[in-house]
């Protein structure tokens, strides 16, 4: 029987683990490469884009306008914040981990007069990066989207599935190497960000690694 008056006697909650299921895995290297991206802050935002006051307040809070066209991404001037269109009244904000709490408060302050929801979902998703000139072919083994650059150009985002997992796919507009991979041949290297639910990370990673292996020359 827990003594609720004596908080010292309460069981200690388990220490939260900051690692994702992919953290223990070595990146897949070779012609097509797979690695986990370091965790960024994530905020899910809901609201009515038909209300100009809402979109203006959201833009004030974020320092950038929300993308209103389907399957598009907006970035701020410095390129550190990404806002993905998820639905007609839903967006996902990627931002530096340390800014998450303050941005969340700022959004809630600015949007207080409007019907809205701003929810931190940092730990709900993991982000994988797939790159190499066969990256689109690898994805095509599990994803029904047409990933040809004519249809899915750099800068586009889309939600779809990979195998049985829901994923958010994004092809960054510039091939910003991030400095930790030395590929020397960035031009014919497609790069995809694959955001997937935490609990599906193992599944997607295994699937991708198997396909990379199968398609290797």
């Amino acid at each position: 029987m827990v003594d609720f008056d004596n908080t010292d006697a309460m069981p200690t909650p388990p220490t939260p683990t900051p690692t994702s299921p992919a953290a223990a895995r070595a990146p897949v290297d070779g012609e097509t490469r797979l690695r986990e991206l370091s965790c960024c802050g994530k905020i899910n935002l809901r609201g009515d884009p038909g209300d100009e006051n809402f979109t203006r307040a959201a833009a004030d809070a974020l320092g950038m306008a929300l993308p209103l066209a389907p399957n598009t991404v907006a970035t701020d001037a410095r390129g550190t914040v990404l806002v993905f269109w998820l639905g007609p009244d839903e967006w996902l904000i990627h931002l530096p981990l340390n800014d998450t709490e303050s941005q969340l408060q700022q959004l809630r302050q600015h949007l207080a007069p409007f019907h809205h929801a701003a929810t931190e979902v940092t730990d709900y998703y993991t982000a994988l990066e797939l790159r190499g000139k066969h990256a689109a072919d690898v994805l095509a083994r599990g994803c029904p989207l047409d990933l040809h650059p004519r249809v899915f150009p750099p800068g586009a985002c889309a939600q779809s599935r990979f195998g049985n997992a829901s994923v958010l796919l994004y092809q960054p507009a510039q091939l910003d190497d991030g400095g930790d991979h030395d590929d020397g041949n960035a031009n014919d290297s497609a790069r995809f960000l694959i955001q997937v639910r935490w609990s599906f990370t193992d599944y997607v990673w295994d699937y991708l690694a198997t396909v990379i292996d199968a398609l290797a020359d």
Binding site: P70, N71, G87, P88, P144, L145, A158, Q159, S160, R161
Partner: peptide
Amino acid sequence: PWCGTRDMSE
């Protein structure tokens, strides 16, 4: 009506 034409499996 929002995302455009997609495969049935989505």
